[in-house]
Design a protein around this nucleic acid. Structure first.
Lengths: 156, 156
DNA sequence: CTCTATGCAAATAATTTGCAAGCAC
DNA sequence: GTGCTTGCAAATTATTTGCATAGAG
């Protein structure tokens, strides 16, 4: 909802410098490093929270980067395919958010109902549960979604 | 995706008879029991899987029940407000599904990537984890989403 | 120079809103 | 009869697709 407000909180992510091998990742699959992709990647790197396509678009507009919203969607699609970006659907938000993968471990999130702050959870309690589910249901589990909502310290 | 196919599987839900006190629940809040609400409730009761607004609409069309898709959405909104229905957003499906609450315990789901079969999981491993998260993040947790995807026995 | 990426317009899909008429109580 | 409900049209929001052109390698 409110990117600005969220960003003013202390996030758990670090501000990472631009990885110089990203262009290689792109080229390795016949993809090209363009002005717009650079802008999106740079934005993702300096953003502490998972962002929506619209937020990326708005933010780049403010920074005078000419880009179409469609291009944002297409860029996210490519980056996700390459495994460089994670796509999240947080608890009943009705839109997707994206964050850089950048070698980070599998993790989940909690989002404040009031201000929209999203904080990383550095745990996933589901390894054992997954096995249990596979036994109980005879499914082969291949993925899961786990997101929390609540009130952040400042909104309580 | 494919309601029919899902329904042909053995679900874990029971087919419940129409609870006669439902109209009371509605009236208690100044709401009215109408032909369309009856049709939706009856459908929810005989459906073994969480259904989307569109599936409710299509199904009722087939049964020659005249109803508008807008009315389905509005009905789900009311039933959810009354606590009679649960709204689910399964793993990156991009739409909401609904199921009768009917006194059932808090639970989660697993959905088959191929045929769309949804099965209830009769466990929630998150009570302790929630406390841990509250300690670690200083959030007050008020809700969570946990949904799995995989391959059901018949699609493996 | 070739083929991918982009912008713009338009299409889709899920859901919501406005308003006048219908129907439950 | 009064006020909640509904249908129909239209608006909204998130996302996707088609196509001709711009631009990366």
């Amino acid at each position: 909802m409110n990117l600005q407000q969220g960003i003013t909180h202390k996030g758990l992510n670090l501000l990472l410098k631009l990885e110089p091998n990203i262009p290689k990742d792109l080229r390795a699959t016949g993809r090209r490093m363009t002005r717009t992709r650079q802008a999106v990647l740079a934005l993702l790197q300096r953003t502490r929270q998972p962002v929506s396509a619209n937020e990326i678009f708005d933010q780049l507009q403010e920074e005078k980067v000419a880009i179409d919203l469609v291009t944002v969607y297409r860029t996210m699609h490519v980056l996700k395919e390459l495994g460089m970006v994670l796509q999240l659907d947080l608890h009943q938000e009705g839109l997707s958010r994206y964050e850089l993968k950048e070698g980070r471990e599998h993790h989940h999130h909690i989002r404040c109902q009031i201000c929209g702050l999203i904080v990383d959870l550095l745990l996933c309690p589901l390894k054992k549960v997954t096995k249990l589910i596979e036994q109980q249901t005879q499914f082969i589990v291949d993925d899961h979604t786990l997101e929390f909502t609540g009130l952040c310290p400042q909104c309580q």
